[in-house]
């Protein structure tokens, strides 16, 4: 299996990173990996089901605030906290998914945006609990289970984030290649036809929205303890747009593309914003160029070189290389 070799090579290469990169770069790399995970979770919606969520930042903020609050109020080991935060966020996401999937298309995009904005408003509403505009500061990074202090170090944190990213990738990959994922592709290509074949498309969409929230909240839950604070900015709607850009530029419907997009953009932003303050200008232009000229994204361009032209279109069943058809 070709992709397995590639996956193992990438994983091993990533494991070496902390030993070759300077310390300050490691901070950027960890944040980039977290954002890659976040972008990948959005790809489940955008790339595989063509549900354009403009409020995916809600998942991120939810995960971040839940883990921050858990860490501030309970003295639980870090991995336990993160798992708990994801579980709570997923539970909160369930009714949200139920409401959002009543609509589709533009209404879906706007409803998700409304929920994200509602979250933003709630942060200010429950000031005593969430810290309001000051956010939550001084989030501790407690010792791991059985007195392990591995995760308190930056390198340890790096491995935890890497583990979460790779694990999520494998899970998502298995998901989109499963019969469940095939139905999602069916919804993407033609929802009416999929429904006519007897699939309850709304139930499928509900599940994928919940799962996308779960993985998105994992990214958020990893971010807050690393940064040491959580601010309302984590709910800001522009981040939803930014992460959508990363998914499209990386290559939607490929899982790996959005990870590359997220990691690449965050690192580039970090490097360029020191040099030029025109970063958003470049960012916006590159984005428009990709939507107009290369909707298959970076990963789509890369793989198109090596891929033999398929005799028959596979209808999006092979999650590995499918790009959203135009």
């Amino acid at each position: 299996m070709n992709w397995k070799v590639g996956f193992i090579v990438c994983a091993v290469a990533a494991c070496v990173v902390p030993f070759v990169s300077p310390n300050y770069m490691l901070t950027v790399i960890i944040e980039a990996l977290i954002f890659g995970l976040f972008a990948m979770s959005l790809d489940l919606l955008v790339g595989y089901t063509r549900l354009y969520s403009f409020g995916h930042v809600a998942a991120y903020g939810l995960g971040a605030y839940t883990s921050a609050l858990l860490l501030l109020h309970f003295n639980l080991p870090l991995p336990v906290t993160i798992v708990l935060a994801v579980a709570i966020s997923t539970a909160i996401a369930t009714p949200i998914a139920w409401v959002c999937t009543r609509t589709h298309g533009v209404s879906f995009a706007m409803l998700t945006l409304a929920f994200a904005q509602l979250g933003y408003a709630m942060i200010y509403r429950f000031k005593d609990f969430t810290g309001g505009s000051d956010g939550l500061t001084g989030i501790p990074r407690p010792e791991g289970p059985f007195g392990l202090d591995f995760f308190q170090s930056k390198i340890g944190y790096f491995y935890m984030v890497l583990f979460c990213l790779l694990g999520s990738f494998l899970l998502c990959r298995a998901l989109v290649n499963s019969p469940f994922g095939t139905v999602l592709s069916g919804i993407r290509e033609n929802e009416a036809k999929t429904a006519a074949l007897g699939y309850n498309t709304r139930a499928y969409k509900r599940v994928i929205v919940i799962l996308a929230y779960a993985f998105g909240s994992l990214a958020g839950a990893l971010y807050a303890p690393f940064a040491g604070f959580a601010s309302p900015e984590l709910f800001f709607w522009l981040i939803s747009g930014t992460v959508l850009i990363m998914v499209i530029v990386g290559g939607s419907g490929t899982l790996i593309g959005p990870i590359i997009g997220g990691v690449f953009f965050l690192m580039l932003e970090n490097q360029l914003s020191e040099v030029t303050d025109l970063w958003p200008l470049i960012f916006g232009s590159v984005f428009i160029a990709f939507v107009m000229l290369a909707p298959q994204g970076i990963w789509g361009i890369l793989t198109a070189r090596f891929k033999k032209p398929a005799v028959l279109p596979q209808g999006g069943a092979d999650g590995e290389t499918t790009s959203a058809p135009s």
């Binding site: 403009f54 499209i248 960012f283 916006g284 984005f287 428009i288 939507v291 107009m292």
Partner: peptide
């Protein structure tokens, strides 16, 4: 949605 978002940023 995305092209106009790009325009908004620019």
């Amino acid at each position: 949605l995305m092209v106009t978002f790009g325009l908004a940023v620019i």
